[in-house]
Design a protein around this nucleic acid. Structure first.
Ligand SMILES: [Zn+2]
Ligand SMILES: [Zn+2]
Ligand SMILES: [Zn+2]
Ligand SMILES: [Zn+2]
Lengths: 132, 132
DNA sequence: ATCGGTTTTGACAACGGTTTTCATATGCGG
DNA sequence: CCGCATATGAAAACCGTTGTCAAAACCGAT
């Protein structure tokens, strides 16, 4: 459990995520880095995203097509997302009542080690305008 | 929009789903059919599951590893699931308050065409016992 | 029952996102 | 500055899923 090395690639991936206020795929991020002149390999991008997700630095969600999307959120605590299915723009939302409901459902049916996934997908105002 | 033909394979897949009270993957279902002496092809299993999911006959959810899992539910209306991550056993649950919350969040942020995904994962009583 | 068209089937190949491999490069403690 | 454990990345493997296409099966019409 030694601290990760401070490499150019790690800094580059983190910076790209911090500058991107929406959910992006590993491949998209890789493309952006390539375009920016950084020769970061796709494998390395995947590895960093995976590590960042594991330690909770980034949130992950699965798009309809199965692709994993990543984002650094302002709120480091437990929360959910309202995500635009067209551009990936997302809003962090909390629902204390939902959290309690999930726990109660689990208890009522004897389930342990409970977790839940909850995402709201829609078309954001900006994309609604562009699409009429 | 003609009715699908009544083939042996279609009946077999439907029957297998009806007899299985838990979420199963296409490959698992295919294995069961093979073991049962039915020579149903994997491609065909995928096609039927896809069609059944499209018309709402079966519910679909994505496991952590990205695999799609299918199940025929008793409740044909909108509902969510409490799923055992070990054996796939699931309970159908409803949360009217959650539905309203999701709609309200979307409205507050100007999102249209809203949908949501919500699943609760845990270890069911039976699996808890087996695992101490 | 038979025929003919349309649909369905299934072995196989292709696809696409992700992970593994492994030889090389590099951060970093001593 | 050395030594070495870790990080990198091109290429290959992986794996669930979808596309291909010739052969088989369904079904309405004859
Ligand atoms: Zn948008
Ligand atoms: Zn929650
Ligand atoms: Zn269980
Ligand atoms: Zn709902």
């Amino acid at each position: 459990m030694t601290a990760p090395r401070q490499t150019k690639q790690r800094a580059t991936v983190l910076e790209a995520l911090r500058v991107t206020p929406r959910f992006v795929s590993a491949q998209e991020l890789h493309g952006v880095l390539r375009a920016g002149g950084e020769g970061t390999g796709l494998t390395t991008v995947y590895r960093h995203l995976q590590a960042l997700a594991a330690d909770g630095t980034v949130d992950v969600l699965r798009a309809d097509d199965g692709e994993s999307l990543y984002r650094i959120c302002a709120d480091s605590g437990h929360h959910h997302h309202l995500v635009c299915r067209h551009c990936g723009t997302s809003v962090e939302v909390e629902g204390p009542a939902v959290e309690r409901w999930a726990v109660r459902m689990a208890e009522e049916h004897g389930f342990a080690d409970v977790e839940h996934t909850l995402e709201i997908f829609g078309t954001c105002a900006s994309c609604s305008r562009k699409r009429g």
